[in-house]
Design a binder for these strands. Structure first.
Lengths: 116, 116
DNA sequence: CTGTATCCTGTAGGATACTG
DNA sequence: CAGTATCCTACAGGATACAG
């Protein structure tokens, strides 16, 4: 599975469409799931990997770096041995949660209707 | 700009994550914007092109076909000359609107904060 | 007006292997 | 544990041209 967001010649964040502005943040494969996982509680790298089973380390790493660069998540290295790293949502990240929840809500509803 | 959704070996709609289920519907470049445009009122092909200025006819067409196949939009050919076609959201499509609105809301908020 | 058919390209992201 | 480095491929989607 994968979700990509590609920039085109025209900015995703068109002046007239606020959707692009937000999609820039939650675009990219697994991004909504990452935020969803972090919404409940801060998590470590390996925990996120487990949350999203088939995600590759590379992609998870990439996503986390992107989100960190965008100010959506924070990365905190715990001085333990072996080292562990905690990722958490920033305030900006929390603003995205309602949107993710709306998406998850629809998904949940669809799955219920879909059969089981 | 562009938004892609790619299927991987693992179903996007994982049993444990409802997000994938919903993202399957609004994945793909421009898909959220298409639904957003149709949310207000049914629209014709060329109107949608105008709404999303830089979208190519091919992609818009592709998106609309996908959404139609998924039961998100309906396509109605009006027997006029020249022919015009009206696209509208189905009931399923309307279920997606709150999620899109949540996304748009965040986007709008971010843009306001972002400067102007 | 409403598309469809081609062609072409970048790039996202999966696999795998390796590091501190 | 928490990544990074490569390599590789599929495929999304942009342009363009044409069609009913």
């Amino acid at each position: 599975m994968a979700l990509q967001v590609r920039k085109s010649k025209v900015a995703l964040a068109d002046e007239r469409c606020p959707i692009g502005t937000c999609m820039e943040l939650l675009g990219g494969a697994w991004t909504p799931q990452v935020i969803w996982s972090l919404a409940a509680t801060p998590r470590r790298f390996s925990e996120l990997q487990i949350d999203m089973k088939p995600i590759s380390a590379k992609v998870l790493s990439t996503r986390l770096r992107e989100l960190e660069a965008k100010g959506v998540v924070t990365r905190a290295v715990m001085p333990t041995s072996p080292p562990s790293v905690e990722y958490a949502l920033t305030e900006l990240g929390r603003e995205l949660v309602p949107a993710i929840e709306a998406i998850a809500h629809v998904g949940f509803k669809l799955k219920r209707q879909a059969g089981r």
